[in-house]
Design a protein around this nucleic acid. Sequence first.
DNA 1: TATTTTAAAAGTAAAATTTTCTTTAAAATT
DNA 2: AATTTTAAAGAAAATTTTACTTTTAAAATA
Lengths: 154, 154
Amino acid sequence: MVEKLDNVDLTILKILQNDSKKTTKEIAATLNMTVSPVYERIKRLENDGYIKKYVALLDKKLLNYPVTVICMVSLRYHNEGFIDKFEEQIKELPEVQECFHMAGKVDFFLKINMKSLDDYHDFVRVKLSNISNIGILESYFVLKEIKQSTEFVI
Amino acid sequence: MVEKLDNVDLTILKILQNDSKKTTKEIAATLNMTVSPVYERIKRLENDGYIKKYVALLDKKLLNYPVTVICMVSLRYHNEGFIDKFEEQIKELPEVQECFHMAGKVDFFLKINMKSLDDYHDFVRVKLSNISNIGILESYFVLKEIKQSTEFVI
DNA sequence: TATTTTAAAAGTAAAATTTTCTTTAAAATT
DNA sequence: AATTTTAAAGAAAATTTTACTTTTAAAATA
């Protein structure tokens, strides 16, 4: 099912990860092809899981979420059960946009979007404090977004 | 131009930031409206900048970019010119997916996607070493993505 | 070499959606 | 109360998506 991708597939992915509103007609034009094969390739890329989902990226500032925080979390206990539990609890928090389990002395990186510092204060006080296994919590505040992209196929 | 959003607008944004392939017809159905007003609201949200872009999110593992690294960078010199220069240089690197200027003793967070650890080694050796103003560089490797989302309007 | 098989591309047409334009209704303003 | 403004609804045209059929070309087999 999951076959190797050729250059046409990669070009399609590069286009769609930059602008998913491009029509198959437009994509076909840049590839010097007709719409049918391009359409079927896109469907295949979707069905095989290369394309996970299509989303709209919104403007944080305009929508009044100007505060971004990076949290570095170290757990108190590192047994398998505790790590899974922590991950499940983090997944339930809609404020946490990204969470990575890390190698090294820090266990988890969290990226959190907030409407205000007060909201972040409440988030730490109410939601994170509910997660009992957090040992060390360090918060880093974003002064400026230099680059924020979802692309990676070069 | 940039007016306040009502609940209908926010619902549209919530839907689109989760699945931008939803048709205006479908969105209108969940809102108990006809397509025309929904269509025009979406156009307004696009034109006013609330919706920045539409993208396809791809599968890192399937596309052979299994290595994610978080870099924490501290600059050697902190004059305004040096910081701007650093930001410009980072923007030019397609491997850097995210970059934030931080408050605190660490100056920048970088998120980087790679095909292999060898590629990361080359990236640090060739590309980052070209940026003369880097003082301290700490690399943290992602063991597992617990959560990776682009949503934030709750 | 000729024939068969296979896969990708191209062509076609119907269905669905997007887009534009006009009409209607409600709310706000004078 | 009349007028203006705004949002929604309706309708129709343009475009795109989708499914299906045919063609083409390359690979495999005899």
